[in-house]
């Protein structure tokens, strides 16, 4: 088990959300979007210019910019 931020999750790998850092409206919005502890997240691909990235969680595909993905702690299993 290694902890890292979602922004550094390599394309194609799966991790589990540990928690959202940061505060206020942004943290609660990330929870609304499904970033809750224990949720598996896959990094599907990068945009052609590198940022943002496309993630899949809870049956939904979401793009996040690096700044937002860097607020989400995940653990890489295995």
């Amino acid at each position: 088990m290694t902890d890292l931020y979602l922004s550094s999750l390599p394309v194609g790998s799966i991790a589990t959300v540990v928690g959202v850092t940061g505060k206020g409206i942004q943290a609660s919005r990330l929870a609304d979007l499904g970033f809750l502890p224990g949720t598996p997240v896959t990094c599907l691909r990068r945009a052609p210019l590198g940022d943002p990235r496309l993630y899949e969680l809870r049956g939904v595909q979401l793009c996040l910019r690096e700044a937002e993905a860097a607020c989400i702690r995940v653990s890489l299993d295995g």
Partner: peptide, 9 residues
């Protein structure tokens, strides 16, 4: 300053 960007595909 910048605001968060999230978009569902």
């Amino acid at each position: 300053e910048a605001m968060p960007f999230v978009l569902e595909l």
